[in-house]
Amino acid sequence: MTMLDDHPSEEASPELEKKAERAESWRGFFTALPTYVFLIIFFVLPLIIITVISFTERSRTGKPVLGEWTLEWWIKLGDPLVRTVGFRSVWLAFLNTAFSLLLGYPFAYWIATRKSAIMRNFLLVLVLIPFWSNFLVRTYAWRTLLDSNGLITSIGEWTGLWGKMLFTEPAVFLGLLYGYLPFMVLPLYAAIEHLDWNLVEAARDLYAGAWKAFRKVTLPLSMPGIIAGSILVFIPSLGAYVTPDLLGGAKTTLLGNYIVTQFKSGRNWPFGATLSVTILALMMIATIIYFRKGGKTL
């Protein structure tokens, strides 16, 4: 490289250069400033306040009383009822993630391994449509299917295998699976589609069986998709509100509904705050464990 090729600023004195660098750094700061301020006011401070509120007494109307502190709500997390709701939510979120992966992986694999690009794109669009479609509407569709006159109920009664499922836990599970399956499929598809198939080919050439090549090469290589998909399914399942509210009953309350209830008929905002912070913490722990297990693949 000759001096002529270099950028003009390289010839400037180090002092000028430092000045230019500082100006550049301020420009970056001011570009981000509006968003920075917005997020501090409408995200960071509310997050701090909700944590503070979880330690306050409640007034007779259920609102928090600042200045009167208590640990009552954090202790209340140990109540049998609260524990049941919490375990049920984590269990359903876990089950949903596992089933989405089990159904979604062969599905995404099938789409990603179609020979013609046109076919792959066509199938991908077919996944994108439910992915972008209104979530409430998609959940409502199951409400009528699982109700007394619904198709699923008719099939169940005809075969004698099941009755009306609406307002039961299986109904909530079905709704969650239906709602979040596309969130699992898309990252899986992206990971499998970008896979270096030469590596799989090489394994086969070295006399690995089809199953072994899949287990030892394809599966580990698609790990980033598995992790991303699992996070995308687990987080909203854990905080699910619409699905259990429309398809579940009083016996299938999940954390999401339980929190909303605290702010409405339950009239206990500080406890609602405690639950909100807890669900956030649970989610962070799950995400961290997942990242640790998958290494730094994402």
Binding site: I53, K63, Y241, I259, F263, S276, L280, T287
Partner: peptide
């Protein structure tokens, strides 16, 4: 990555209590 319920609850508290 924050659950929507948490987001809703913290904004409600922020708008009405603070």
């Amino acid at each position: 990555i924050i659950p929507e319920v948490t987001m809703g609850a913290m904004l409600l508290i922020w708008f009405t209590q603070v």
